[in-house]
Design a protein around this nucleic acid. Structure first.
Lengths: 138, 138
DNA sequence: AAAATTAACTTGCTTTTTGCAAGTTGATTT
DNA sequence: AAATCAACTTGCAAAAAGCAAGTTAATTTT
C-alpha cells in the first residue's frame, strides 16, 4: 500500500497525507452521494479507476478509519463498504469542492443546477445529508 | 508538466483533476495563510517539496489560473507568486480540511486552538479572510 | 450436479510521477 | 570582480499509476 506518513503537523498537510490524491475522495463521493457500496460499483464510475489502484485505496481508506467492510445484505460474495463517522465528516470538503468547481470549472448541467441549490442553502443541505448518513450508520 | 485532463464532468472529479495531489494545496496554503510568495519561501516549508515538483506545480497552477506571476516589490531577481480570485476561492476547501483534521487527526496544539476558533465562527472568519485576500488582489 | 458467471482481488509489466543531488543562468550583494 | 542568491533544469533511481490477464470463493444457470 501507499506509504502513510505525516509530512508535518499542519492540519491541511495531514489531511492531504490521506485524501490528497485523485481517487480517494471519488470513492467517498460514490458511497456518500451515488449509493455505491461495492468494489464492482466503484469500478463502474465514469472516471475508470484501475482495479489495483481501487484495491489499494480501499485498503488505505480502511486503514485510516474512513471506511469499514461490512456484510452485504444481499449476498455473501459481496463486500459492503460503508463510511465511518470520520468518513462522513468529509462531506463539507466535498461540498466546497462542488461549489468551487461549479464557479470556476466547466461541469455538467446537472452539476450547475445542484451548485445553485447548494449555494442558496449550504448549511441546511449539509446538515441534512450529514444527519441522514450518520443515521444509516448506526 | 503533469497531463491536465478531465476524467469526467463531475465537479468533484474535475476539482480533483487540478488540486487532487499532495502538493498543490500546500502552495495555496502558503500564499493564503503563511504570507509566502516566492519559490524559495515555498521550498522552506516544513513538508519539504522537491525543487522539480515545485516548479512543475507552480507551472500547473499558473496554467489552470489559480495563481499568477508578478513583479516582486523588492527585487527584480525574485518572482512574486500571487493567487487569482479562482485561487482565493479555494479557501473554504482549506477551511473544511482544517476542521476535519482538527477533529479526526493528530495535529499541533496551535492547529487545535485555531480549529476551535474556526468552529465557533466559520462563516465570519472565512468571509473576513476572503475579503482581505481579494482586496490585496486588486 | 456440473458449468458458467459474478465479485473481489492479485500479478506482471510498462509508463508516469516523485524524490534527490547537482548543475545552470541571471540578478544582486560583497 | 567575485561570491551569493533566486529560480529553475537535468539526470537518475525509486515509487506509484495504468493496463491486461489471471485467481479464488460464492452464487446462478443449465
Amino acid at each position: 500500500m501507499k506509504q502513510l506518513k505525516q509530512r508535518s503537523d499542519c492540519p491541511i498537510s495531514s489531511a492531504l497525507d490521506i485524501i490528497g490524491d485523485k481517487w480517494s475522495l471519488l470513492i467517498v463521493r460514490d458511497i456518500m452521494m451515488n449509493g455505491k457500496n461495492t468494489y464492482n460499483e466503484f469500478l463502474k464510475s465514469a472516471e475508470k479507476i484501475a482495479t489495483n489502484v481501487l484495491a489499494d485505496r480501499l485498503a488505505m481508506l480502511e486503514a485510516t478509519g474512513i471506511l469499514t467492510k461490512a456484510e452485504h445484505p444481499d449476498s455473501k460474495a459481496k463486500i459492503y463498504y460503508k463510511l465511518t463517522n470520520k468518513g462522513i465528516d468529509l462531506l463539507p470538503i466535498l461540498i466546497e469542492m462542488i461549489l468551487w468547481a461549479d464557479e470556476h470549472l466547466p461541469v455538467s448541467n446537472d452539476a450547475v443546477a445542484y451548485g445553485k441549490l447548494l449555494k442558496k442553502d449550504k448549511a441546511t443541505i449539509t446538515k441534512q445529508m450529514m444527519t441522514a448518513l450518520k443515521k444509516n450508520n448506526k
